[in-house]
Simulated assay, not measured.
Amino acid sequence: MHAKRAGIALLLSISLLGLFTACNSSSLAQSSGKMNVVAAENFYGDIAKQVGGEHVNVSSVLSDPNVDPHEYESSVENGKAVATAQLVIQNGGGYDEWMKKLLDASPNDNRSIVTAFDIAPQKLPDNEHVWYSPQNVKVIASSIATVLKKQDAAHAADYDANLKKFDDSLQALEQKISEIKSKYAGTPVGLTETIFLYQTGPMGLDVKTPGELQKAIAEGNDPPANTVAIANNQITHGEIKVLIYNEQTNTPITSKLQRDAQSKNIPIVPVTETMPQGKTYQSWQLDQMNSLEQVLKSSTSK
């Protein structure tokens, strides 16, 4: 999802970032004994915490699941954090352009950058939500570990051990995807936007919603009228068994799709773009998959 309207507050942030220099990150790290890591989104921050363990201080810019990323505006505090970070993790791919502006505003030769979209091995066309793929996340976590080991070689063994533990934990997600595919492949579903395509594909679910509608909603644009009519008709005629929607991006169109689905007793499965509070990346994703599995079970048994 493109945060196209993000960054209005960057003008103030950028004007103040001249107060910070590259040496800030080194001095702060030395005083705390930990690496300073800034993640553009909280799911990447959580992954960094799991891989870095006790050797990292991690802060995440986007962390409120109630905030529409379309409307996000970075702050002076974000700029300070980026200026003093030794590692910055961003999604890229047009998703968090405000982070690129923050990085450009505070050059730092001692800072490493991991851009998830650039290294993700599995990418869908016009779809930057690469963190929804466990396979992509494995590669991203490995890249984080590589940077941490380079910056802090003394604790390389800890980073390797933490990475292995993280990778092993993703097996539950991969197994759940396989289970859903084995039971419900071919089930027709609706999506309000593109974010969940990284899972509906591996699950073998048949997404009926026009791609143009999904893409437009994901980018904060109005979808073509004919695609809205198609999506409405799919619900009216019971052509989908489940409607999956991103609850962080409510528009009049998606709200109507939800209401219409409820009126036709088509179950709705909410998903979020950023990680809810109190979750890990794994528990967040697994909870959503479990919810979808239960709904598929009930809706396909009718």
Rank of each mutant, 00 (worst) to 15 (best):
P65I: 03
I14F: 00
N36T: 13
L28C: 03
T146F: 03
G93N: 10
E293D: 14
S255M: 13
P121Q: 08
D222W: 01
Q277T: 11
L62T: 11
Y95N: 12
S263V: 07
S26A: 13
P107I: 09
L17W: 00
V58W: 00
Q262K: 15
S299F: 03
I195K: 09
L28K: 08
N246K: 09
T187D: 01
Q50Y: 01
G220A: 07
Y184E: 06
L205G: 01
G201P: 00
S75C: 11
A185D: 05
N36H: 11
D260C: 01
I195D: 05
Q288C: 00
S106Q: 02
S143R: 14
N290L: 09
S143Q: 14
D160W: 07
L243R: 03
F117D: 06
S106V: 09
A48G: 06
F166N: 05
G186T: 03
Q288M: 11
S263P: 06
D109F: 10
N91Q: 13
M275L: 15
K256T: 13
A156G: 00
A105N: 09
I180T: 07
L197R: 14
L296A: 03
T300Q: 11
H237A: 15
S298V: 08
Q214R: 14
L148V: 10
G53Q: 03
A153N: 11
S15P: 00
G92V: 00
Q50T: 13
D152G: 04
S283D: 13
S291A: 15
M289D: 09
N57R: 14
A29C: 07
E77A: 15
Q50I: 14
V51S: 03
I235H: 04
V189R: 07
A6C: 12
I119E: 05
N265Y: 04
L19A: 15
A185E: 10
M99H: 04
K208I: 12
G33E: 12
I140F: 05
T274E: 02
G238M: 06
K123Q: 14
T194G: 06
S63W: 05
L296K: 00
D287L: 05
F196S: 10
L17T: 06
T84L: 01
V88Q: 05
L213Y: 05
K256M: 09
V295D: 00
N162C: 07
S63H: 13
D160M: 09
V76T: 15
A120E: 07
N265E: 06
L173A: 11
V51W: 01
H55F: 13
Y95F: 13
V76Y: 09
R111P: 04
E293Y: 02
K183M: 08
S63G: 06
V51T: 01
T251D: 11
S60F: 08
F196Q: 10
L12H: 14
Q294G: 12
W284I: 07
L213G: 08
K100W: 00
N66D: 15
S106H: 03
L19Y: 08
N110E: 11
